[in-house]
């Protein structure tokens, strides 16, 4: 067992937690920065935004101003809009005038009310994955020409390569809570092993063998089985009598 000192896997786990916290911050920082760059490269834009989308849910969003944020939020409350379509169809979407465009009737009407008249949205693609969308908005109709669209499309390729390497906040939250769970459950196994060693005079590996054998015979999940032993400690043999 000396081949695998305990510090090894603990180090790996801590490394993962640290790395994930870092990537969560990085994702937000990256989308904020990219929204800024998108606006700077598109002089006709009144605002720009970058959204990371996972299973039709937005996981991170960067926006240059409140109008972009509003227009973007509307897409997710209405479940329609240029960015969602750019993301799901993997192709760019241009809206020259929100007051006449008929493709997203609810979104266009609400966006026009908020002051957005035209927009261009380009998907963020990485291999087979569609990561989200990058968009520019304007308060005047038909604000973007072919040169603007070509520039934003080139930028989206570089942005996708960057964003592909950062985790979305949703994923990292999920993983780090799984890690906490897993450490707790590992702790329970350790306590249960100690109880069996003390109570039945076993070595550590004999105790673990006994526990895995019990899990196999009873079909009770290991975590529950060890938790039962830990909670039933002092009440000798009650968990054995019931099985």
């Amino acid at each position: 067992m000396d081949l695998f000192p305990p510090s090894n896997e603990l180090g790996a786990t801590l490394g993962r937690i640290r790395g994930l916290v870092l990537t969560q911050e990085t994702a937000q920082h990256a989308v904020d920065l990219l929204a800024q760059v998108a606006q700077e490269t598109t002089p006709n834009a009144s605002g720009a935004g970058v959204s990371l989308i996972h299973e039709s849910q937005r996981t991170s969003v960067g926006a240059t101003d409140a109008l972009v944020r509003t227009a973007d939020d509307l897409q997710y409350t209405l479940s329609e809009g240029p960015c969602l379509t750019a993301w799901s169809t993997r192709s760019p979407v241009t809206i020259d005038d929100t007051s006449t465009d008929v493709r997203f009737p609810q979104w266009s009407a609400a966006a026009a009310d908020a002051g957005v008249r035209s927009c261009f949205s380009v998907p963020l693609l990485r291999g087979r994955d569609s990561l989200g969308a990058m968009k520019v908005y304007s308060t005047v109709p038909a604000a973007f020409d072919d040169a603007d669209r070509a520039r934003l499309t080139s930028l989206s390729i570089a942005a996708s390569a960057l964003l592909g390497h950062v985790q979305t906040s949703e994923t990292s939250t999920r993983i780090s809570s799984e890690l906490r769970e897993s450490l707790r459950s590992r702790d329970l196994v350790g306590i249960a092993k100690g109880i069996l060693m003390e109570r039945e005079g076993l070595t550590e590996s004999e105790a673990l063998t006994a526990l895995t054998a019990r899990a196999r015979i009873t079909g009770v999940p290991f975590r529950q089985l060890t938790a039962d032993i830990v909670n039933g400690h002092g009440d000798h043999g009650s968990e054995d009598a019931s099985r």
Partner: peptide
């Protein structure tokens, strides 16, 4: 690996991956 770790597995992820690929043995337990 994460689930194995939660069951008190002692071998780290990199080595479990190597074991699964047939590159190194792991203790029977």
């Amino acid at each position: 690996w994460l689930h194995y770790f939660s069951l008190s597995g002692e071998v780290d992820e990199y080595e479990v991956e190597a074991y699964l690929a047939g590159l190194m043995p792991m203790p029977a337990l």
